Amino acid sequence: MHIAYVVVTALAVAATGFSGIAALLHFRPILPGMAAAGVAESWLTFPIGTLKTAGAVGLLLGLLGVPLVGVAAAAGLVLFFACAVHTHLLAHDRSAQFLLANGLLVLSGAALALGLTGS
């Protein structure tokens, strides 16, 4: 396992896990950005928070020795965050959540690319 993969994936686990748990708990600071993007608060639990948290767990499993699960989780997170960026663009929303979605898309993409090269 390459050091770059471990570092990037660990960062992705932490960032995506925090973002997923924040959505599951309906963390008050994220609510205005979600509303600006046209996302209903009821969606924060499922699908948004559930999928982000499951993706973080899958990445963690990839770090712990199940590389195919890690690659699949990274691919799913890339798709999720690509859709999130698209949603923010459609709503003409440039809030902090838009920037976060872009950052998590790049981080998930890097974890996917590094996971594919190592498997």
Rank of each mutant, 00 (worst) to 15 (best):
M1I: 03
M1G: 10
M1A: 09
H2L: 14
A4R: 00
Y5D: 04
V6T: 01
V6P: 01
V8G: 04
T9A: 04
A10Y: 02
A10C: 03
L11K: 05
L11Y: 03
A15V: 00
F18T: 13
G20K: 03
G20W: 03
G20F: 04
I21Q: 02
A22F: 07
A23G: 04
H26T: 13
R28D: 08
R28M: 13
R28Y: 09
R28F: 09
I30R: 13
I30M: 10
G33H: 04
A35C: 00
A36G: 12
A37G: 07
A37F: 03
A37V: 02
G38E: 01
G38D: 00
G38M: 02
V39T: 02
E41M: 01
E41Q: 03
S42W: 08
S42Y: 05
W43M: 02
L44Q: 04
L44N: 03
L44T: 03
T45D: 09
F46H: 09
P47M: 11
P47L: 10
I48D: 10
G49A: 11
G49R: 10
L51G: 07
L51N: 10
K52L: 13
K52Y: 11
T53F: 11
T53S: 14
A54E: 14
G55M: 10
A56H: 06
V57G: 09
G58W: 15
G58V: 12
L59V: 06
L63M: 11
L64C: 05
V66P: 06
V66A: 07
L68D: 15
L68N: 15
V69M: 15
G70Y: 15
V71C: 01
V71N: 00
G76F: 05
G76I: 08
L77M: 00
V78G: 01
V78W: 01
L79W: 06
F80A: 02
F81W: 11
A82D: 08
C83T: 04
H88K: 15
L89F: 10
L90R: 09
L90C: 05
L90K: 07
A91L: 08
H92T: 01
H92R: 12
R94G: 05
R94E: 10
S95T: 05
S95Y: 07
A96P: 11
F98P: 13
F98G: 12
L99H: 14
L99W: 13
L99N: 14
N102C: 12
L104A: 05
L105Y: 10
L105Q: 09
L105V: 09
V106N: 08
V106K: 10
V106E: 08
L107P: 01
S108W: 03
G109Q: 03
G109C: 05
A110Q: 08
L112A: 15
A113G: 15
A113C: 14
L114V: 04
L114M: 08
G115Y: 09
L116C: 08
L116F: 07
T117G: 15
T117N: 11
G118Q: 12
S119T: 15
S119E: 14
